[in-house]
Design a protein around this nucleic acid. Sequence first.
DNA 1: GTGAGTTAGAACACTAGCTGAACTAACTCT
DNA 2: AGAGTTAGTTCAGCTAGTGTTCTAACTCAC
Lengths: 416, 416
Amino acid sequence: MRMTRADVPVPLVRSGEVASRTAIRRANLGLVLRDLNTHGSRSQTQLAEDLGLPKATVSTLVSELTELGLVYQTDATRAGAVGRPRQTVELRGTAICGLGVELTATDARAVALDLRDDVLLDRSIAIDRADPDTVLDAVAALIHDALAVLAESGSHVLGITIAAPGQLDRDAGVIRFAAPLGWSDVQLVDGLISRLNADVPPMRIDNDARLGAVAEYAVARTEGIHDLLYVTGGLGVGAGILVDGQILRGAMGFAGEIGHLPLGRPDLPCPCGRSGCVEATVGVTAFLDTVSDPPHAVRDLDQQMTDLRTRADAGDPVVLAALGTVGQGLGVVVGMLIDVLSPRAVILGGYFSYFGEHLLTHVRGAVEARAIAGQAGGCDIRTSGFAFTGPARGAAHTALEALFTDPVACMEHASS
Amino acid sequence: MRMTRADVPVPLVRSGEVASRTAIRRANLGLVLRDLNTHGSRSQTQLAEDLGLPKATVSTLVSELTELGLVYQTDATRAGAVGRPRQTVELRGTAICGLGVELTATDARAVALDLRDDVLLDRSIAIDRADPDTVLDAVAALIHDALAVLAESGSHVLGITIAAPGQLDRDAGVIRFAAPLGWSDVQLVDGLISRLNADVPPMRIDNDARLGAVAEYAVARTEGIHDLLYVTGGLGVGAGILVDGQILRGAMGFAGEIGHLPLGRPDLPCPCGRSGCVEATVGVTAFLDTVSDPPHAVRDLDQQMTDLRTRADAGDPVVLAALGTVGQGLGVVVGMLIDVLSPRAVILGGYFSYFGEHLLTHVRGAVEARAIAGQAGGCDIRTSGFAFTGPARGAAHTALEALFTDPVACMEHASS
DNA sequence: GTGAGTTAGAACACTAGCTGAACTAACTCT
DNA sequence: AGAGTTAGTTCAGCTAGTGTTCTAACTCAC
C-alpha cells in the first residue's frame, strides 16, 4: 500500500467522485479484500497499518466480511514474538470465483480464479477457423462445462469475462472488428447467452491485450509496480497499458492498438492492406515463416513455441536469428512506448514469453539505443510467466473485480 | 459531470483510497467548487443533480463554502419559469488565485488565475540566454512583482507552479536536464525561494507540456472531454497526456517525452546527438530555418509567428510548404499517439497554435493515412487558443488545484 | 509459577456528516 | 386570493469512522 498513515497530506478519498455514506463502507470493505489479495493473509493490526485505518474500524470491517463468508480468521497459535499472537485474516478461496475465457483464432481457453488468485479451472479447446456461429457453439459449450464443474465444487461464479482480439464495443458486447479472427460485428455476448441457460452470470467482453496486462498486474502490484505495459504477441500484436493500476482504455476504448503502427520493416506487406506494420514484422506468423520451412500452420502454438525454445536453447542459428529480428523490431516499438508512457515495467506476453533472454537481450538493446528513459530510467523489461494463458487469467480477474469494489452488493446477488 | 444520479451502478467512492470520515466532507466541498468551476454558477438544486447528492447535503456544503469565503449566493430575482426562483451559487473570484510561471529559453511569463479561471495577471519578460543564476534572478524578480500586484488587489496566492521544459525532479524542485535551456541539475525551487522572501507561497515545478495539457483541460472538461493529448511546439517538442482527467506522468515521471522519438526525417541531425528525432523535424528551429533566409534568431516568437501566420494567410508558398512539412511530420507522431492512447482530442500548442487549418489539414491527413482510430474514431485535432501562454496558465491551474481537493485546509493556511 | 510487560483484538461511547422528510419561502397562474 | 410549483432550510435519525478502554493471550524474568 502506498498510502500509510504517515503520509496523509493527500486526501483519503480521491477527488472526482462524490462520497456518500454507504459508499464509504463498501469501499473500505473492498480495500480490506484487496489488501489481503495483494499482500496475502495478515492480522487485523497489519491491515490497519496497511490501510491507515484505526484498529477499531478494521475490526468491524473484518467481522462484516466474515459474516459475508469472504474471509475467516485462523487461530494463529504459532507465536514467535512477545505479546498476544496475531490471528490471521484469510480470504476464503473457493466461495467465489471469476471465469475468464479467451478466444483466439486457434483455440479458446477458460480459466477460473478465486479470491486468492488460485486457479480453480484451466481448460482449452482447439478451434478450427470457422464462422462465428460454429465458434460460438464451441465456446458456449466450453463455458457450460466450466460452469458445471465450478458449480459442483461449490464455487459461485461472480461473472464471466471474454477476452477477444481487435476492436470491441464493451457496452454492447460486440466484436466490431477482429482481424485475427476475420470477424466483424459479431454479437459475442448475446450470442453466447442465447446458447446458455438464462441464469448465467453477468458476461462482459474486453480486449485480450488489456486483460493480459491485468493478469500481470495481479503479480506486479505485489512488488509495488502500478504502471506497466504489456505487449502480447500472437497473430495480432497489441498492448495493454496500466497507469496507476488503472486500465488505459482511452476515450474511444481503442488505446493500445500498436499492431499497425508503421514501425516494422517498411517492405513487409500486412493483411491490413498497408505495409510496415508492427504486426507484420513481429507477429507470430512472421516469426514462424522465418524459422520453419516449409511454412508451418499456425496450430498448437504452445507446443510449437516450446519446441522452438528448445531449439533456441540448443543454439539453433535460424531460431536465434529470427528472435534477433523480432527482438529488434519489438525493441523499437517498446522504446517508443516507454518514452510516451514511462512505465515501471514492460512485460512481453503471448509467444514472446517463451524465449526469455534469447529475446530480451535484443529488445533491451534496441530500447537503450533510442529511448530517453530506457533501462536507465528504471524500467524493467521481462517476459510473462503466463505464456498464452495471460488474457484468460486477466479476464478471470476482471470478472472478480466487482467484489473489491462493492462486496456487499456482490454477495447479495450471490445468495439470491 | 459524468456521474449523475441516474447512472449510479458505479460506486460513489473510487476504490483504491481509504475513505475516512473527515475526508468525505473535504472531498465533497471540493466537488462543489469543481462543479461550479467547470459548469459555471448554478443553483443548489442543480448542484445536487450534478453531484448526485441530496439537496440537504448540498445546502450544508454551500453554507460551509460561504463561510470559507469561497462562494456567495446571489438573489436571483429574475424568474422565468413557475415556482420559486433559484438563487445562484457563484465562485468568489478574486479571493484566491494560483500563480503559474513558465520558463523558456527566450522568456519567462507569469499568469495568475482565480477560482473562476479569470486571468488576474499576465506579464512576460524576455530572457537573454544566460547562466541559471542570471535567469533565476530575473524570474525571481518577475515572481516578486507578480506577488506584489496580487497582494495589492487583495488576492491570496495559494501556490506557485513553475513550468519548465525537460526532465524534472518534482519532489526536489530540480531541473535534471533541459536541452532547450542548456541546463542540467539546476535547483530551481530552492534557488527562487532563496531569492524571495521567506513567506512565499508553496512552490512547485512541473513539465511545460503537461501543464499545457492542464490548461487545455480546463476548457475541454466543460465539453465533457476527459482524455486529451497536448503537443507543444517550441525549441523542444513534448506531449502532455491526460487520461480520464488525470495527468499521465508514468512511474518515472517521464511520460510524454516524444521529442526524440525516431519518427522525423532520418537524415536530420538533432542536438541530442542522434538523428531522425521529432524535435529536429517539427521543432520551431527547423520551421524557422525553412521559412526565413538568412536564418533568423529565435526571439520574440509571438511576433514572428503572428507574421508568419499573416504570410500563410496571404498564400506565401514558402511558409505553406514549411507548414506542410511540419504538419506531415507532426501527423505521423500524433497518429501513432492516437493509436496508443485513444484520446478524445488532440490539441496542438506552442507555435503550432498560430497556424490553424494551414497546419491541421496536413496533420489530419497524415493521421487518417495511418492511424487505426483517427478521425473516424471521433478524435478531434485542433490548435490551442492559448498560443504560448498555455503552460503558464496550466501552471496557475495546478497551483489552485489543492483548493478543489481540500478547501478547508487551504483556507486555514490562507487565513493564518 | 507468578507477575510484569507486550501485543492483539473487541467493546463502547462518541461524533461527524450524510439523508429523508417535513417545512418555509418565493414565485406563477388561474 | 388561493392553488400549484419549485427552491432552499431545518431537523431528527442513522450509519460508520474514532479514541479509549478493556480483555485475551502470549513471553520473559525472577
